[in-house]
Design a binder for these strands. Sequence first.
RNA 1: GUGCCAGUAGCUCAGCUGGAUAGAGCGUUUGGCUACGGACCAAAAGGCCGGGAGUUCGAAUCUUCUCUGGCACACCA
Length: 553
Amino acid sequence: MNIKTEIINEIAEITNMDAAVIAEAVETPPNHDMGDLALPCFKLARELKKAPPAIAADIAGRFGKPAFISEVKAVGGYLNFFYDRGFYINHMMERLIAAGKDWGKSDMGAGKTVVIDYSSINIAKPFHIGHLSSTAIGGALYKIYKYLGYNAVGVNHLGDWGTQFGKLIAAYKLWGDDSSINEHPMDAMLKLYVRFHSEAKENEALNDEGRAWFKKIEDGDEEALRIFGWFSELTLREARRIYGLLDISFDSYAGESFYNDKLAAVIGELKAKNLLTESEGAYVVRLEEYGLPPAIIVKSDGATLYMTRDIAAAEYRHVTYGFHKNLYVVAYQQNLHFRQLFAVLEKMGKGYAKDCEHIAFGMVSLEDGTLSTREGKVLLLEDVLNKAVERTIEIIDEKNPDIEDKAAIARDIGVGAVIYSTLSQSRIKDITFSFDRVLNFDGETGPYVQYTHTRCASVLRRAGERSGSADYSALGNDEAVAVLKLLEEFPETLAAAIDKNEPFYVTRNITALAQAFNKYYYEHKIIDDDIEKTNARLALTSAVRDVIKRGLT
RNA sequence: GUGCCAGUAGCUCAGCUGGAUAGAGCGUUUGGCUACGGACCAAAAGGCCGGGAGUUCGAAUCUUCUCUGGCACACCA
């Protein structure tokens, strides 16, 4: 059973209303002395044709008092329920212990596939902090969907097609040096790219050369493909190392070039459906009825575009995975692009168009301006991670020098701090990257939460193996109940996180849990001579530890 | 110019399908280590919720106008 559901059902019965409507309406009061659960009756007023205070009083009068309720009080238009504390604690502890490490796990997504397109790095370009948001948000969603029973498919839609690669090869042929590329591949490739752009400003012929090399890639020229393949391999090797650090994984690396042989079919289908119009030499799909500018499908020189590839990719994902949802974790700059893409899919009569969603997030900029790969103004993600790990080592040396596995712990905490910083606020907010902020380990931060986890683990280790029953009356205090309330919310938080595709909901819940537990920890001794009470407190500690761990990974 | 997004404490952000006294963290000031890990805990100060008008019993939340900032607007991705 579940206390909340019981209450909702009983209210539904009394008022003769739909339980789902009541479930929508109930809320947690802002203050403890207003009870544990509240029903604002204002919304019911119309339906029941009575004044809110009268409704509240009426329900309060007719509510049969089960054992888990200590009081039902009508206050103005609100109906406040007070749980019986002893009952609530027993009830929650039973649920938590039964679930064990799987608290919050669900099969709500059974049989449903969610394709998540995230990270999507570019070949031969550095993995910089601009990629962190997509990688972290997408990776977190991937894990949450999986935990809730969905079949999640992580796709790294590699940027591995376009004239830029012709330019890169041209630059390599002119100035490239194999040994330096092998030694520091990303750095060397970036240098070639930057040099090409700065010299091309003076020398227009270079651009022609770049285009010529790209044409060779398209035509399958052996040398061009060999060099390009080499660059791809180097980029992916470097990227995989970073994904390893971040604990991020993908099921598919099908990038833009993967769709080359599927574009003719897309264009054919658009033509067959009479959606393609010629305009200034190019072929476009008009989208006036959506209030959008036309989407260019084929350039006037006959070449295809990003849009063409994305249509092919959506169709491919539909056919291959039969998705329930198809998510694109891409910065909000591409808002218009995705609105156009979804509109085109809809015009093509693709039923799955409504299941596609752009999971937009804000820009990352540096304190002194925007990132720019062309100008070589980048902050490498790996450098940021390394700096965070170094900072962690400094703190460990200062506070806890005797710890074992220092390097591994520092890596977990340092990397965790960086990930936490992007998952701690709603996606859409722009971020001005600041080392001061990322490397601050106090307060609402990754290290704080991890510290709490370690604290729990440490207490449990110290307590050793215990047996015997538990006396939950030991948890009869405000601090313990506050912890239980947050644990109770965890499953709903996970569901809300995928509903809105906002992983920070989970981060926020876990952070609040850590705060509540730290307060509890400070106010109450966990291990004492009373074995049964200690067992109860340890069980709570263990639940906190497991949920934090779940939330963090 | 048009469209989309954001604007809440000195800073970074919650709260937004209208609801009870607008909440955290950082920073500042102050107090707490003979405790199971002080990367902790507690207290204080700090707000015309960008501004105006409207809808409502009730607006940070909805509508509208306006200001500021960001992004995007046909052959880049």
